[in-house]
């Protein structure tokens, strides 16, 4: 996929949550504003735009990625999944049932990342969980309830 250097814009097809959406992309656009402003997929949050907090986490080909650091044009021909594409997933239910949600701003990023964690490592131990979840910041919960949520899904899937 080529885009003229600098000022050009193009219409690009993105595969998001199993559907193709045509979006307008500048060369400098990251995936995050495209999702939020053109498609109304505001579950991914803009909280640092620096890859530091994980609030914008989406899946690109089933791997958690920072939408704020992924160039939109590079996600053409990739499969993108946002929190809106995970409706009724076990991880969402686990976050609700384990009281892992307060203000809810970090929640979509945490759920997407945790979903990918249990998909990629169905037998994850504490070290793997910690390695994966250190990428996301929550300021409300103290992480205890998030730990319980993730472990509850791991337990169910390993049974």
């Amino acid at each position: 996929m080529k885009l003229s250097n600098g000022k050009g814009k193009m219409v690009a097809p993105l595969l998001i949550n199993g559907e193709i959406h045509d979006v307008i992309v500048r060369s400098a656009d990251t995936l995050l504003p495209i999702l939020r402003e053109q498609l109304g997929l505001t579950g991914a949050k803009q909280a640092c735009q620096n890859g530091d907090c994980g609030a914008c986490t989406v899946l690109i080909n089933n791997q958690p990625s920072h939408a704020c650091l992924s160039l939109a044009i590079e996600t053409v021909n990739q499969s993108i999944t946002t929190i809106e594409g995970l409706s009724n997933s076990p991880m969402q239910e686990a976050f609700v049932n384990n009281w892992a949600i307060q203000c809810g701003y970090c929640t979509p990023g945490f759920i997407v990342n945790s979903h990918a964690l249990v998909t990629n490592h169905p037998n994850a131990d504490d070290n793997i969980i910690e390695e994966w979840l250190q990428s996301n910041i929550c300021r409300c919960t103290g992480y205890e309830e998030i730990k319980m949520a993730v472990k509850s899904v791991l337990k169910t899937s390993s049974e």
Binding site: R36, E37, G40, T42, G43, A44, K45, Q46, T82, I83, E84, S87, Q92, E93, F95, V96, W99, I101, G104, Y105, T107, P108, I111
Partner: peptide, 21 residues
């Protein structure tokens, strides 16, 4: 009692101030 905002928040559907266009 379960929080009345938990399900919406888990779904990523709550619109915060900056989420409106």
């Amino acid at each position: 009692e379960q929080r009345i905002d938990a399900v919406e928040k888990a779904a990523g559907k709550v619109k915060f101030t900056d989420d409106y266009q």
